[in-house]
Write a protein that binds this DNA or RNA. Structure first.
Lengths: 149, 149
DNA sequence: ATACAATTTTGTAATGATTACAAATATATT
DNA sequence: AATATATTTGTAATCATTACAAAATTGTAT
């Protein structure tokens, strides 16, 4: 789901999800914010438009979307799950300093290990951690103060 | 840390960790149980030998070991962190049915993607999910009942 | 349109893993 | 032995996530 021109309502229907107002708004936010938002990020942002929004609805919706495979939950971060509307295989790099999460292209098929013969694989997650280029330079990092945890 | 003949006390000292009784027992358990135990698994088991053991000590110790890179924390499971004394690069497969976690050999170096030029990589995590061979056969699976969540 | 059924949303209360913190205990050093 | 330092312990707090039931919305059939 990358093409903005696709109608969100139809997109949901195509994936067997009834297109409620809340669901469309949450999906819209996810597609417009591919920076791996947390549940709270999503809730805070969408609540500005949908004032009655409940966090439970956000959880329900994200679970629903995940089951329908239109988004993926990431476990790159320690505490919380983050969500990614890009369901194509790719890796995630988490910077230990600024806590930023970067996507990176990777040819996951080359990984295909003989060791998993006989296993039915559903998802492939590639999570790297380390220091991002920006933080390598800036010893004094601004992001780290606001987000260190 | 695979060779059982290595003295655990010395092993800890070599890694800059003071070898307290609790730390040795926890390390001993980890090395003897490479089935990716949870914090509670470790606590329950070691508490049988060290009756005064506190769960906080287990957390402290695991954090210490992880910082010293003698174990690795896995996020293959949804809720909780699991620990692995095998710090060599390898993948983890989580079966959605029986919740079992399998190690698998994988040549992570082949992954090296150009996209990460300039990034300083510390850890590489490979997490697959799906159905394990045992669960593919047994439609009625026993493990799933005890561990489904 | 109207009434009924099914689905979705909401709010609150529980759960459960992890962390904070300070007192108690053990260990090392002089 | 005396003192300083490091470790362990227990309890209380935190925080993301889940459970659950009531309220609101939507769909369907008459």
């Amino acid at each position: 789901m990358t093409d903005k021109s696709i109608n969100l309502t139809e997109y949901l229907i195509e994936h067997g999800i009834r297109p409620s107002f809340q669901r469309i708004k949450i999906l819209q936010y996810l597609i417009g914010n591919k920076d791996h938002p947390t549940v709270d990020d999503i809730y805070q942002a969408v609540a500005k438009e949908v004032s009655t929004l409940s966090k439970t609805t956000v959880y329900n919706t994200l679970t629903l979307f995940t089951q329908a495979s239109i988004i993926k939950g990431l476990r790159a971060s320690e505490n919380e799950i983050r969500y990614d509307p890009d369901t194509a295989d790719h890796g995630h790099f988490k910077c230990k300093k600024c806590s930023g999460i970067y996507d990176f292209a990777v040819n996951i098929d080359t990984l295909q290990s003989d060791a998993l013969a006989g296993f039915q694989i559903h998802e492939k997650g590639i999570y790297f951690t380390g220091i991002c280029p920006a933080c390598m330079e800036n010893k004094t990092n601004s992001k780290s103060e606001e987000e260190t945890k």
